[in-house]
Design a binder for these strands. Structure first.
Lengths: 252, 252
DNA sequence: CGCACAAAAATTGTTAACAATTTGTGTTGA
DNA sequence: TCAACACAAATTGTTAACAATTTTTGTGCG
């Protein structure tokens, strides 16, 4: 019964021109499978595809005008990223991270982003490299005030990835991309949209402390930013109910 | 002309019973594609498959008694892990990380493993949990003295993954697994086997400092361990020559 | 009315075949 | 002898079809 809806939902995903792969500086999709991977990836982190949604292979073939082999390869990689869950003989679903995974992701973020900031503080031309980030935060603010939720979410994630990029370490950048995408999934599931604190203010504070080379200040700002984000989450729905709930919320 | 050799090389890989996926605590291969993924993954980190080796799909099908679709899915995931390189229309090769990637991997390891150790120091029942690691180091030493190179390499990697597991954070464990596998690839390429310092002594030192809850000592031990490892590498061959050289060395 | 059971539809897992591209070989001509 | 060209073999990219499993639908019975 939910088929018609889900198919339609997936189709809007393809219609929307995807700039977020540019923003997150993903490699240009050379392959067909890379293209589909990026497309689904972007849709998930943009909250255009919500956790728990079934990703039927046939529908995806239809949307992206390709064969099932291609779709399956893309889904396998997304599963490896923990962006989708792959149940044997049952299909692919947008992943629904639980409480434990949430803790792990945020703890890892505190560790990794802390280490990244520590390295950034040693860079000589830091203020110059921070300029594009300043602009990015401005765009964030603009998107928020004009209620462009998708762009806002996109930029919030991109901010952290761009920050990682400044450390000039591809391993850390890829890791940050992965952590950001999983965080986006977590927020889609558990964040109460009512009191979403405007993250761009916190981003601003991070940049300010960085420019002042205030080590304690930056680390504090980042930790508070992440902790605020984590504390905003509500896990009242237990386990398997959550994804069903999300799907129903979407429907009406 | 090199076909016969490479095919034979790949076949030895399947013959050897793979315990390393158990050692590294990978999820049990439920799928066919998971099985093949693990098999190739293990072969690469065990140095049974060396960097630059071509992974022809047909040969892999033959070895693992499965179809090309399965092989392709596994290769796609390995490529995503940077364990194999996937060139369009040219096929899959065991990856050959370069100097930049080496720097990035080791820097990331210093950051992540440092953070992990910091967390471990806060655990109340640390000494108890350290016991299995002590035993693992003993096995390392035993494997080294009986010149069982494959087991030794396996255990050296497993040590760091097990250490990460103590932190009880799946994100960090997965990350450590990824970093360890890439490091193994780097060592296969650039390490001069002559003066390979016995890493188990350094592992021992890390455990001792951990048990004594000597924060500065552990961090120092780990950093030295990683720096020693990185310093042993030799990059005299530049760029694309390296993989060719490795393949030729293998052949005669 | 609800539960258990059975048939049908839909979806995934796997394999085989075909098309496109690249790599290797052999021939010709200067 | 060497370079360029053309042809042949091998390998990858893609699609379609079939088999196995799951989910849904429909029916009968208590």
């Amino acid at each position: 019964m939910s088929e018609a809806f889900e198919a339609a939902d997936v189709q809007t995903m393809a219609a929307e021109s995807s700039v977020s792969s540019r923003l997150l500086e993903l490699a240009e999709p050379a392959n067909e499978v890379d293209r589909i991977y990026s497309e689904i990836f972007d849709a998930v982190i943009d909250h255009r595809l919500l956790p728990g949604v079934k990703l039927t292979e046939a529908v995806l073939c239809d949307v992206f005008h390709c064969s099932r082999g291609t779709v399956r390869a893309a889904l396998a990689r997304l599963a490896h990223d923990k962006i989708v869950e792959l149940l044997p003989n049952r299909g692919a679903f947008v992943a629904t991270p639980d409480l434990k995974e949430t803790r792990d992701v945020f703890e890892a973020r505190r560790m990794v982003e802390g280490a990244i900031l520590d390295k950034l503080l040693t860079l000589p031309d830091l203020p110059l490299r921070l300029l594009p980030l300043r602009q990015m935060v401005e765009e964030e603010r603009a998107a928020f005030s004009r209620k462009d939720r998708v762009t806002w979410i996109r930029l919030s994630n991109a901010f952290h990835v761009q920050l990682a990029k400044l450390a000039d370490n591809e391993v850390l950048t890829d890791l940050m991309r992965s952590l950001a995408s999983r965080t986006s999934l977590i927020i889609a599931l558990y964040d109460v949209p009512g009191r979403s604190a405007c993250s761009f203010d916190e981003h601003d504070r991070i940049l300010a402390s960085l420019e002042a080379r205030d080590r304690a200040g930056v680390l504090d700002a980042m930790n508070h930013h992440l902790q605020d984000c984590e504390r905003r989450l509500r896990f009242e729905d237990d386990g398997m109910q959550a994804d069903l709930r999300a799907v129903f919320n979407l429907k009406r």
